[in-house]
Design a protein around this nucleic acid. Structure first.
Length: 643
RNA sequence: GCCGGUGUAGCUCAGUCGGCAGAGCAGGUGAUUUGUAAUCACCAGGUCGUGGGUUCAAGUCCCACCGCCGGCUCCA
């Protein structure tokens, strides 16, 4: 017997083991008609799942977010059934069909058919038919051998693979059936197909079986799904919105950067306006780092073969490096990382314990080989600039250093308008270098630093690199997407390989701790994220053009010029639109260029020494004296405000 | 790299069944001198991604390659 506390009734019941939600609901005489599943403790169950343990049960209805899991799971099955009906049961071999954040996909192999987007409407139609038919969805179990035999008969080789490799011996093998369609599945599923909500198939693509390149490539059909048409529509609109925010489009429209096939894929050129954004970010970065006791350095883009041999990059990282080049009998490599150079700076003289911590910082441009299919605008490139630094310190300094770095990272990201973070702590993997005590000190300092911020974090047990544990920080942008930025990483490998040491109080050599860290990760990518976050409407301090002066007619050009000079004297980035165009046209163009301030000057302004200030996106204007405007915008700039 | 899609003027795109390569914006010239999101006229702009093939004839059909887009993989 098991005891189930049903939250919706606020009452405890005793049932036989193996009871299902369906039975429970039946006992309640159909009082809960709209229940699509349940949540037993923290696990989502459907109405078919036998319940074998006592616990808390909450009915899931459509309003409950978690019920989407059930809907999407069933839609994956409905899609699979549709594919089998269209292309023939024996031709369609099913892979996996999981749910995703907004929908579901199914990886399938279809003999004799390569799907394209044009096939999607037909599949959708068939799915709708299946939904309309309202097949009851049933769950049943088979013994392992029978299950394998069952799928062998159906030539479902991937399902057999799953049974053999993913389901431990002795565990029950559950299958779900709707109409003639049967699939290996642990659920959860809807009571019947006609309970399915609104969905749309959005693309097909290739996906390796089990994500492994050496495995055959299956066809992935991806759908989005919600309970209501409205939610679906909202989501599709959001996708459209994301498309408008695409930094590649904004970069082109606002002439910020260029990625051109003549130059090479993944190699970004910064145009004058984009270069300003980058300069502002880099200047602020340098200023902040100097304030916090970092020393700025510059290192070359290539280094000798021996250096990369010593660092271990040639044996561990070579597949990401560009090939060797030969210069006068010597081999050289373009740098994929800055670390070895910073290590050499440390080693350039004997170090005393009194000098530590040493914090070496560099906006170092590195080059890494990326496969052509992986390149994506500024987000994924082959040459990028890391806001890199290496902290070399004593054991007793580790904790403070980590806390300071995390503090710097979060404060910096906040100053760019990001205030939602996801923090991950990755700990010691199976294979590692360094001794256990160092790992322990390092992991503890990382954990303590995160806990001091009060942020939630996730632990990736065993997810650290072989050379040290790390913290990763992801930021959430305006439309809810996550981007990896900061990383704080211990390195127990390089100090060993390069024999780094300092002379301690005891006059003995000691091995220092080395911490590798970046706040933005990559400047290029960070700017890409900024552009998408702000949809191109950057905060005023980052705007390439902060003010556009718009004379009404040619006769106002002279006054406009004096306004421009006044702003230039105050370090404000200003352009004068002296084209022979109508004011309306100039305003429109300035709006399209996402320029935060427009100053319209005509007879009135020239006479009174004022400007008519129009803020981007707002109609109408406010008349201010030139000085008033200057102090207003200067304040906005120094506070890094967005409009 | 792999799967699918796609490639026409600086940009956004049209181009029917294979039959003389188009529009809007941007650019140039001129007119106009304008009060809060597009003034008008004229001009110029093309190896239709590249290379092969089929055909009397290819932007259009076929093949290969390249780039880009969406995924897979990988990751800053």
């Amino acid at each position: 017997m098991i005891e189930i506390f049903i939250e919706d009734l606020n009452q405890k019941f005793t049932f036989n083991e193996g009871i299902t939600l369906k039975d429970i609901l039946k006992n309640l005489n159909g009082k809960f008609k709209d229940v699509v599943g349940g949540k037993l403790n923290s696990e989502i169950v459907d109405i078919h799942t036998p319940i074998n343990q006592s616990g808390n049960l909450k009915f899931l209805k459509k309003e409950d977010k978690e019920s989407l899991e059930i809907l999407r799971h069933s839609l994956a099955h409905i899609m699979a059934q549709a594919l089998k009906e269209i292309y023939g049961d024996e031709n369609v071999h099913l892979g996996i069909g999981p749910t995703t954040e907004h929908g579901f996909y199914y990886d399938v192999e279809i003999e004799g058919k390569r799907l394209t987007d044009e096939d999607l409407p037909q599949i959708e139609e068939k799915m709708k038919e299946i939904i309309k038919k309202g097949y009851q969805i049933e769950r049943f179990e088979l013994p392992r051998e029978e299950a394998i035999k069952f799928f062998e008969n159906k030539k479902e080789i991937y399902k057999i693979d799953i049974i053999k490799h993913n389901i431990p011996e002795g565990e029950p093998i559950s299958l779900y059936k709707q109409g003639d369609f049967v699939d290996l599945c642990r659920g959860p599923h809807l009571p019947s197909t006609d309970k399915a909500g609104a969905f749309k198939l959005i693309y097909v693509s290739g996906a390796y079986w089990r994500g492994k390149e050496t495995n055959p490539m299956l066809q992935r059909i991806y759908g989005v799904a919600f309970w209501s048409e409205k939610e679906l529509k909202d989501y599709l609109n959001m996708l459209e919105e994301a498309k408008k925010r695409d930094h590649r489009k904004i970069g082109k429209d606002l002439e910020l950067f260029l990625i051109d096939e003549e130059i090479g894929g993944g190699l970004a050129i910064w145009l004058p306006k984009g270069a300003i954004i980058r300069k502002e970010i880099e200047d602020a970065w340098k200023k902040e780092h100097l304030k916090r006791g970092y020393q700025l350095v510059y290192t070359p883009h290539v280094g000798k073969e021996q250096l990369w041999q010593t660092s271990g990059h040639l044996s561990l990282y070579q597949e990401n490096m560009y090939p060797r080049m030969q210069i006068e009998e010597e081999g050289y490599y373009v740098k994929p990382m800055n670390c070895p150079f910073h290590v050499e700076i440390y080693k350039s003289k004997q170090r005393s314990y009194k000098e530590l911590p040493i914090r070496l910082a560099e906006l170092g441009t590195v080059y890494r080989y990326e496969r052509s299919g992986a390149l994506h605008g500024l987000m994924r490139v082959r040459g990028f600039t890391q806001d890199d630094a290496h902290i070399i310190c004593r054991e007793d300094q580790v904790e403070d250093e980590i806390r300071e770095v995390l503090n710097l990272a979060l404060n910096t990201l906040k100053s760019y308008g990001f205030d939602e973070f996801e923090v991950y702590l990755s700990t010691k993997p199976e294979k590692y270098v360094g001794d256990d005590k160092m790992w322990e000190i390092a992991e503890n300092s990382l954990r303590k630093a995160i806990e001091s911020t009060g942020l939630d974090y996730k632990i990736d047990e065993g997810g650290g690199a072989f050379y040290g544990p790390k913290i990763d920080v992801k930021i959430k942008d305006a439309i809810g997407r996550l981007w990896q930025c900061s990383t704080i990483q211990f390195d127990f490998n390089l100090p060993e390989r390069f024999d780094m040491y300092y002379i301690g109080e005891d006059n003995q050599k000691h091995r220092p701790y080395m911490i590798h860290r970046a706040i933005f990760g990559s400047i290029e990518r960070f700017i890409g994220v900024l552009l998408e976050h702000y949809a191109g409407f950057l905060p005023v301090w980052l705007s390439p053009v902060q003010v556009k002066i718009i004379p009404i007619a040619d006769k106002h050009l002279e006054y406009a010029e004096t306004v421009k000079q006044k702003l230039l004297e105050n370090d404000i980035r200003v352009e004068l639109d002296d084209r022979n165009e109508r004011m309306n046209k100039k305003i429109r163009d300035a709006e399209l260029q996402k320029i935060p301030f427009m100053l319209v000057v005509g007879d009135k302004e020239a006479e009174t020494g004022t400007v008519a200030v129009r803020e981007k996106g707002k109609q109408g204007s406010q008349t201010l004296s030139i000085d008033e405007f200057v102090s207003k915008i200067k304040e906005i700039i120094s506070n890094k405000h967005a409009l």
